[in-house]
Amino acid sequence: MKVAYFPGCTLKNKAKELDDYARKSAEALGVTLEEIEEWQCCGGVFTTARDEVATKLSSVRALVAAKNKEQPLVTVCSACHNVIKQTNHAMQTDKEFADKVNRYMGEEPYSGETQVYHYLELLRDVVGFDAVKEKVVNKLAGKKIAAYYGCLLLRPNSVMKMDDPENPSIMEDFIRAIGADAIVYANRNECCGGYIAMESPDLAKKKSNAVIENAKAAGAEMIITACPLCKYNLIKNGADIPVVYFTELLAEALGVKEDTNE
């Protein structure tokens, strides 16, 4: 099957591997990620103010492009996913906002028709973790992996509706599907510090450390994430265990990792 794909700015630069492994793995699982044309940066964070229109236009343009292709819109980066999904929700539920936005769109008004998936949801709900399991050639058996969700994948839950926001399992199920051991720890949905790393690196350090320490105390040998900023914060703030993108492990498990480094 083919799906519309929004890579996002970081995936074209510092997080190229997140993108590359995602595409190759999807291909191996029978899904083609079709990059939408002329996409623009989502802005990195969703502005919750209802009167902010311009900052959300790039997301709506991506959603409309997917609608025109009659495909669901898939993102890999947690931040892009969060911004686009929250924007889509606003288009569905806030008529005043939607009316303002639609003045910048084409003839046909958009009201949130596009189905938005995070790559993990694509694996769980469309491909199915059982199907992923069947395609695994390199089992990561015995590897103790802790999933780090951060905040953006899960919250606000009333919009994201991906999983139980306080005790999620989608990434653990992913880890099990590729044959490794999932380490469950309570701080997996706590913030790494996010963009505060810019101005208050000390705060980001404190927050990231709390995540790393909790994961290690639970026995983790590796942390996986879907967010370039989470990865940056965890690594910069002294993670002494590997922190990698989940797509890298997926590519490794599916045996397509080598193909990606052209």
Partner: peptide, 16 residues
């Protein structure tokens, strides 16, 4: 720094 992801700069500007 060398590793700063674009996302960080974009997000900080959006917020601040």
């Amino acid at each position: 720094d060398d590793e700063t992801p674009q996302q960080l700069i974009v997000s900080a500007f959006r917020k601040y």
